[in-house]
Computed example of a mutant assay.
Amino acid sequence: MPHHLTAHIRATEGSDPDLVRQELAQLEADTQKELGCLTFQVFQDAAAPTRFILWESWISPKALDQHFTYAHTQRYMALNLTQVEKVVVHSPVNQNAS
């Protein structure tokens, strides 16, 4: 069963906003190539440009766990450009939908 979530993140204090956007764009491109990734999109908050939302769908929770083992994800996390504020796991209202 697919695993859907939204992650709310913000730039760490002192991070260069241009670098944050550039690195998130690269993370998005690399993550979308993962076999277990159904959707991975990054959006910047128009009213608060240091805040971002990640829309994610994975083939399973295990695929999300695997995401954190890949070199591109570990590289991004080591940059310490953002921090997670909240993660919301979603379930479809229509359980027959993915």
Rank of each mutant, 00 (worst) to 15 (best):
H8T: 09
R10H: 07
A11Y: 00
E13R: 11
D16A: 09
D18W: 01
D18F: 04
Q22E: 06
Q22Y: 06
E23I: 14
L24H: 03
A25N: 15
Q26F: 07
L27P: 03
A29Y: 05
A29C: 11
D30Y: 02
T31W: 09
T31M: 13
Q32F: 01
Q32I: 01
K33T: 13
E34P: 05
G36I: 01
G36K: 05
G36V: 03
T39N: 07
V42R: 08
V42C: 07
F43K: 15
A46E: 14
A46K: 14
A47R: 12
P49T: 06
R51L: 07
F52M: 10
F52G: 11
I53N: 14
E56T: 03
S57Y: 03
I59R: 08
P61H: 01
P61K: 02
K62M: 11
L64A: 09
Q66S: 14
H67Y: 13
F68Q: 11
T69L: 13
Y70C: 11
A71I: 10
T73Q: 12
Q74K: 09
R75P: 06
Y76E: 15
M77H: 09
L79Y: 12
L79C: 10
L79P: 09
T82V: 06
V84H: 05
V84F: 10
V84L: 15
V87K: 14
V87T: 15
V87Y: 10
S91I: 10
P92S: 02
P92C: 02
Q95A: 11
